[in-house]
Design a protein around this nucleic acid. Sequence first.
DNA 1: GCCAACGTTGGC
DNA 2: GCCAACGTTGGC
Length: 152
Amino acid sequence: MQYWLMKSEPDIFSINDLKNRPQQTESWDGVRNYQARNFMRDQMRKGDLVLFYNSSCKEVGIAGIAQVVKESHPDLSALDKESSYYDAKATQDEPRWYMVAIKWKKTFKRIISLAELKKYQELKDLKLLQKGNRLSIMPVSQNDFEFILNLE
DNA sequence: GCCAACGTTGGC
DNA sequence: GCCAACGTTGGC
């Protein structure tokens, strides 16, 4: 079992939105970065746990936990000309972009803010905190994951 | 709104 | 394959 962090702009899709979906589940469409795609396509497995991170908003930080419930499948929003995620280079045969589905598991009682996370020496290896990291999906070590759970 | 840092594109 | 130019991310 592996652990991950996934970023979302809460104004666009929040952890509450996830909780309110049918089956509290959503396919993570719209990722258009190869490294992030490769994590979803090649490494994320059913049962993996995910830190749900709020980015580009008033309170940036970790909002809760989700779980991978469906492994890699094509992100067909890339084929939809009306979608802001449209990619002219994606086709039915070569979908180019892939996603996993995650299910809501827990909303933290408080947002564990980015500023707070930065304070802990224990989290110095957390990729989120490393300089210039803009990945929207990244692996998290089991130790870091458990440390963060205990901060709530 | 600023801007550092990174990713992608495309000419050569 | 290099690299400049451009676009995007995302914290502040």
